[in-house]
Amino acid sequence: MIINGVSIDETFAEAFPMKGTRLIITAHNEKWAMISAQTFTGFATSVIACGCEAGIERVLSPEETPDGRPGVTILIFAMGGKSLAKQVETRSGQCVLTSPTSALFSGLESDTEIPLGQNLRFFGDGFQISKMIDGKRYWRIPVMDGEFLTQEMTGVQASVGGGNFLVLAESQEQALNACEAAIEEMRQIPNVIMPFPGGVVRSGSKVGSKFKALNASTNDAFCPTLKGQTKTELSPEIESVMEIVIDGLTKEDIDVAMRVGIEAVCKLGAANGIKRISAGNYGGKLGPFHFHLQEIMA
């Protein structure tokens, strides 16, 4: 398959099951909601070392938030419910509770729930106040700038992590431009995040390593400097490869995001140095969700 001179590999991205939730952070203004959300989602690029993958989903207008203030939604994913609960609790406690004027709400309804403010309330040292509003429990925790309001629980749902595609270009700059264009379009899609810096990964990994201590290492087949040194996947004209990783609440959400992202890349086309689209395919070692590029773009 070739789109605007860009070859779409007959391959697939492998993704794996995760547990995910959506949180809503509100604040006095959008600036402070965003600061809190960015802090919460910092160091959350990959479960390999961060314990979770998290990112900002979108900005909410005051009309869309529970307390009528500007807000931001974030999605956070982890390998299991317990690890997700731990990450949500520590990040909420250190990054949202501490953030001026913030309030924290669940953005996902589900029968399965994990604590949100349930344990943060103890920071109130006995002065915390519970309020049941519309059948949901909230905690009012006295803090130095007033009160921190947080919902007690948030819903959790089975999700998908690790959807991806690779952009193969003739130069580093062209690969970066294409990925930026893709991310801009993909950020309009609900229920997904691209957790890496700016949404783009330059250090794609393969499963396993020659070093026993590591369970992932550089994807040498796609490293342009190793073209003559390893079993490469790259043709001579490819000088740079970048990856976009997508986590989503459902497989269908990732399908949509991948399609939109690849379309944006292909729009730039071969004329802008984009030669191929491929995907992280690890022979079935990584996960049960397979995103076939040509099917997605059909």
Partner: peptide, 26 residues
């Protein structure tokens, strides 16, 4: 005197009730 974030949330929960509280300005 304080600005309490839970009040708009609580007042909004009255909106669907048949009472004058439903019409209070937040």
């Amino acid at each position: 005197a304080h600005t309490l974030a839970f009040l708009p949330l609580m007042l909004a929960s009255f909106r669907n009730l048949d009472t004058k509280f439903a019409n209070l300005t937040t």
